[in-house]
């Protein structure tokens, strides 16, 4: 680890008393009534988003309450399986066997037709340097979907049609 040099002052070290917070003792409860149709559609390799009738924003994955109107959205809309990268970064994990740091791109996807983003991952073969905001991607389904979030195995990169478009002053 790189150390930064700065003007440091040393302080007397007094004793320390230990304590702990067992985060494992919490039980999280949450409501999934709005999730059931979404999970059912995943099993059939379909993507559906939940639309708020009041402001027409579509959330994918579905939200229980519309963030803008505070009403419960209840209209399901079909979505295409393509989307784009809204933002991305890299997560660094230490390889268990070699001990070396590997970087995995983590991306936030906005599904075409939806107005929210969610975190997911790309095809492991995609290099981090090639990822950019606006990159079009497509769902890669698991071979045998079971009706849960793991059915979207990852996202594949697809051809970017905009790259071939010529600007007027070119």
């Amino acid at each position: 680890m790189v150390k930064l040099e700065y003007l440091k002052k040393e302080y007397e070290k007094t004793r320390q008393m230990p304590g702990k917070w067992p985060l494992s003792s919490y039980r999280y409860k949450f409501n999934i009534t709005h999730f059931q149709p979404f999970l059912k559609a995943l099993k059939e390799k379909r993507l559906i988003g939940l639309k708020c009738r009041s402001c027409n924003t579509v959330s994918f994955p579905p939200k229980l309450v519309c963030g803008k109107c505070l009403v419960q959205p209840d209209q399901w809309v079909a979505l295409r399986d393509t989307g784009m990268v809204a933002t991305f970064t890299a997560n660094y994990m230490k390889d268990e066997t070699t001990g070396e740091l590997q970087s995995f791109p983590v991306i936030a996807i906005q599904q075409d037709g939806a107005d929210t983003t969610f975190l997911t991952q790309l095809n492991p073969a995609v290099k981090f340097e090639d990822v950019y905001v606006g990159m079009p991607v497509k769902v890669k389904w698991k071979n045998q979907p079971e009706g849960n979030l793991g059915d979207i195995e990852y996202y594949d990169v697809i051809d970017d049609a905009t790259k071939k478009m010529k600007l007027q002053n070119e």
């Binding site: 959330s59 939200k63 963030g67 933002t87 936030a108 107005d115 929210t116 983003t117």
Partner: peptide
């Protein structure tokens, strides 16, 4: 609305953080 991380597996309302 939250950005990046949503609640109960829903997406995040902010498109551009």
């Amino acid at each position: 609305e939250t950005g990046i991380v949503g609640y109960a597996a829903a997406g995040a309302g902010q498109l551009d953080p």
